[in-house]
């Protein structure tokens, strides 16, 4: 039996650069301020008025030959049978070898306990506004909009001392759902599915349009592909 090989195709023709993926990812994965599992590259080229603007959504490429996996001393960073690059927080020693080796800057380390905003006790107007800590306590969670579903396959919030990264929403994929950035993309630019299945949406898209990957020369064999132009 052949396993699925999960991957994503991003149609830059459809992408409008709105950042909905980036922000919705934060809500789904309880990602702290300053970390961007879902991110983007922007570029303005040319001279007025012949100006070209490009926006390239980025995320962990879930590379076949992932340098982060190869360089992880503890096997915390590993490949799943379905080709996702996943991270076991309990095995992670926070050495950052993965971060350093990732050509895409897709890995973040929690140098401090994340979400400090929600432990902050300061208030703007004494007696009249609240503090981050008060809001979090009233919500009953570490962060008020905490998504517990994330914790089904990963730490719901990653602790100090370890790294974290995009898991392609493996907790959702496990239930047959698309990653949240895919569901949240209003333009239909993100196409997720099984690259081993010729009938899957991403395979069809790849058959129709010549794909590109980021930094192909690194030989990482990314499984996030880009088609067409922004």
């Amino acid at each position: 039996m052949t396993n699925e090989r999960w991957g994503m195709v991003i149609d830059l023709h459809r992408c409008v650069g709105c950042g909905g993926c980036d922000i919705s990812c934060k809500t789904e994965n309880n990602v702290t301020e300053g970390f961007h599992w879902s991110n983007h590259i922007i570029e303005t080229r040319g001279k007025f008025p012949d100006v070209n603007y490009r926006y390239i959504p980025t995320l962990c490429n879930h590379c076949e030959d992932a340098p982060c996996v190869a360089n992880c001393p503890t096997t915390a960073m590993h490949k799943s049978d379905e080709g996702l690059t996943l991270h076991d927080p309990d095995l992670c020693i926070g050495c950052a070898a993965c971060m350093v080796s990732c050509p895409y800057g897709a890995i973040y380390r929690n140098d401090e306990k994340p979400h400090s905003r929600w432990r902050d006790e300061e208030v703007a107007i004494a007696g009249c506004t609240s503090s981050g800590k008060e809001v979090a306590e009233k919500s009953g969670e570490e962060i008020p909009h905490y998504n517990a579903e994330r914790a089904e396959t990963y730490k719901g919030i990653r602790p100090k001392g370890i790294i974290e990264k995009c898991t392609m929403c493996d907790h959702r994929v496990a239930k047959g759902k698309d990653p949240w950035c895919v569901e949240s993309c209003p333009s239909g630019a993100r196409i997720f599915g099984d690259l081993n299945d010729p009938a899957s949406a991403p395979r069809k898209a790849l058959a129709k349009h010549p794909p590109r990957v980021l930094q192909k020369e690194k030989g990482t064999d990314p499984h996030v592909f880009y088609i067409r132009d922004y």
Binding site: D88, D90, E141, Y146, A148, R150, A151, G156, I157
Partner: peptide, 11 residues
């Protein structure tokens, strides 16, 4: 338990 532990929430 490896994965489900979270900020006070059980999966």
């Amino acid at each position: 338990n490896h994965f489900a532990r979270s900020s006070g929430s059980q999966a």
